[in-house]
Write a protein that binds this DNA or RNA. Sequence first.
DNA 1: TAAAAATACTCCATAGGTATTTTAT
DNA 2: ATAAAATACCTATGGAGTATTTTTA
Lengths: 98, 98
Amino acid sequence: MEIRRLRRFMPVITHCGITAAARAELIVESALSTSVRDLERELGADLFERTGRRVVLTESGRALLPSARTVLVGTDAARDAVAAVSAPAGCGSARSRR
Amino acid sequence: MEIRRLRRFMPVITHCGITAAARAELIVESALSTSVRDLERELGADLFERTGRRVVLTESGRALLPSARTVLVGTDAARDAVAAVSAPAGCGSARSRR
DNA sequence: TAAAAATACTCCATAGGTATTTTAT
DNA sequence: ATAAAATACCTATGGAGTATTTTTA
């Protein structure tokens, strides 16, 4: 399970397509296509139904979504928690780059 | 942020040392040492205090712990959620390999 | 000096890019 | 025919292993 793959999974949902999502993520379409395929193979289930022009979540994809969110939120929280300790008091929490 | 690194972070805590943790994780000590160092560099903070024979969490390390657990639990939940949908009804949830 | 951690290197797996092919409208 | 997804290939980066060096109790 790779965090990067989970992160890439999300914009495909919101953009209803790999090409559009790749554009938004500033990576090339082939990389995102491969990433999604790899995640699907790893989980042993199709996450999207590719029906021509539109890409929509399958039941497996919908099942994955909540936990994927948990993981992604968790990684941000991890970064922030460490940053908050390291930062001098009274500097406001970091909340910056991924 | 790599899930593998977060996963490796945990046994170092419970075993109070990299060598012992590596033994438990069935990887070589140098790999675990590097992994921890990489995580520390990525987060910009020392996670452990290496005082000779014992390796103990720093404040940053303690700060990281809860979110690290969240992420790891989340990845397992993700796997299980997809497996539960894919599996024929009444087969009990998977809960298997990492 | 003995046990643990860190470093240097090598090899292999994986991510991302370019180019091309397949597929469905 | 067109637009999107998949595939083939190449390169670069990162993980894990072996061997060695540093460190400290």
